[in-house]
Design a protein around this nucleic acid. Structure first.
Length: 422
DNA sequence: TCTGGGGTCCTAGGACCC
DNA sequence: TCTGGGGTCCTAGGACCC
């Protein structure tokens, strides 16, 4: 029998902001997506107002005035740093940790006595050492641990730690019968609707339903989910994250772009970022992709959203080659007379660097000289700040860059933005 | 005026092979 | 008009996650 804990920071982005700005405590706070477009994190007070995830910010104007909502632009440097601190502390509790996302991780707690107490220790330590609140769910499988975590968050009697491992079966049944099936990890909007229509409303109903019928109707993913709900582990702990099979970099512009030259700058910049990510995981890509699009929400305006894939002469991670390839594509798909809102690039057919296949046809692999140049570029940008050194094609003005109207300082990652205590 | 960004896995269907 | 039975590989699209 395995024992897995899911530890998750409550309202992560909002909690991270509150660490350095205690005035935000008790105040309704939202964190907005890039370009301050829509809501990506909500404090408890915001949830209570009925604001949903992903809601466009401009639709909340009235609510803002009425309730004194504080809206912050997203500050990824801060969140990444807080996340690292949390994950490092959590790694002390188990030799096996899977960092699942920026704000949550699985821990293998097999063999540890006093699980609930351990959960409380985790909570207290993270609160004290980092300053953010976490909840802990403990169960024999990942899916159940997620569910236990949900219970820990929603029901105050558990004081932030819900442990299915040391709970009478009847109690677990009762809990599962009181939770809607859509809360289960892996049951999204569509599946939820499907199940509801079929008369499966609660988690318990799903758990106890005929597994063969579910498999036939919904496939193997559903089967795994149901087995996990029954306490049979089907999902392994993934301690080391495998290299990415595709790398995307895309952004909505801060304003509409019509000019090809400006699009070139954006696409070149995005590809530089993607290529850097590619090099960071020591990979090369054989295929590149670029797409641009107008604003699909604008009825009555001419719409155009082309994309184009290109195979590279040989797998590479050289920014210059990759940028050149996507710029060629961009020229092919660009049409005059549209107001473009967004551009993106993607790298795929990714393989580890140094394993060159199809050498016979490779015109020229990444040369040592190019490799040296790229790693120097990365080192300088890592040390001096993103985009300090870039290709000329990225452009100098970059007027298309996104808006982030109300970003908090990079408190922990820039010397000139350290918090000041008076 | 204003609607994010980045991933994974699975399946179905088509092309092609013997 | 009738028209086998596999297999593999690739792609597009759907569903999910945070």
């Amino acid at each position: 029998m395995s024992t897995i804990a899911l530890v998750d920071v409550n309202n992560f982005y909002v909690s991270a902001e509150r660490v350095f700005n205690p005035k935000l405590e008790g105040v309704p706070v939202v964190v907005l997506s890039n370009n301050d477009g829509c809501v990506v994190a909500r404090s408890q007070e915001i949830r209570a107002l009925g604001v949903t995830m992903g809601e466009p910010w401009f639709k909340l104007r009235d609510l803002v005035k009425e309730h004194g909502i504080v809206a912050l632009s997203s500050n990824y440097a801060l969140y990444a740093d807080i996340s690292n601190r949390v994950m490092t502390i959590l790694s002390d509790f188990s030799p096996r940790q899977e960092v699942y996302s920026i704000d949550e991780c699985f821990l293998d707690l097999e063999g540890i006595p006093d699980l609930t107490q351990t959960g409380q220790t985790i909570r207290q330590r993270i609160r004290k050492w980092v300053g953010v609140p976490v909840c802990v769910g403990i169960a024999p499988t990942k899916t159940l641990a997620k569910l236990a975590n949900h219970v820990a968050k929603k029901r105050s009697q558990y004081q932030g730690v819900c442990n299915f491992k040391e709970m009478p079966v009847e109690d677990i049944d009762q809990i599962l019968a009181s939770i809607e099936v859509g809360e289960v990890w892996g049951i999204g909007r569509k599946l939820n609707a499907h199940l509801q229509r079929g008369g499966i409303q609660t988690v318990k109903q799903l758990r106890d339903f005929d597994i063969l019928r579910l498999r036939r109707r919904f496939g193997v993913v559903m089967e795994r989910t149901v087995r996990e709900l029954r306490g049979e582990p089907c999902l392994e702990m993934a301690e080391v994250s495998p290299p990415k099979q595709q790398i995307i970099s895309s952004r909505t512009f801060g304003r509409y772009v019509t000019d090809l030259h400006e699009l070139e700058g954006a696409v070149s910049t995005y590809m530089s970022r993607a290529a850097e990510k590619l090099r960071r995981q020591a990979s090369v890509a054989a295929t590149a992709y670029v797409c641009i699009r107008t604003n699909p929400h604008k009825d009555g305006e001419p719409q155009y959203s082309p994309g184009m894939m290109i195979g590279l002469p040989h797998p590479t991670n050289d920014t210059r080659e990759l940028v050149q390839a996507v710029l060629t594509c961009l020229h092919r798909i660009y049409r005059d007379g549209f107001r473009y809102q967004k551009a993106g690039v993607m790298l795929s057919d990714i393989t580890p660097e140094g394993i060159s296949q199809g050498e016979l046809f490779a015109s020229q692999p990444v040369t040592p000289k190019a490799s040296k140049l790229m790693s120097t570029l990365d080192q300088i940008n890592r040390k001096m700040g993103e985009g300090v050194l870039k290709l000329a094609s990225d452009g100098v003005e970059q007027e298309w860059k996104m808006k982030r109207g109300n970003k908090s300082p990079a408190y922990t990652t820039r010397w000139d933005e350290l918090p000041i205590v008076r």
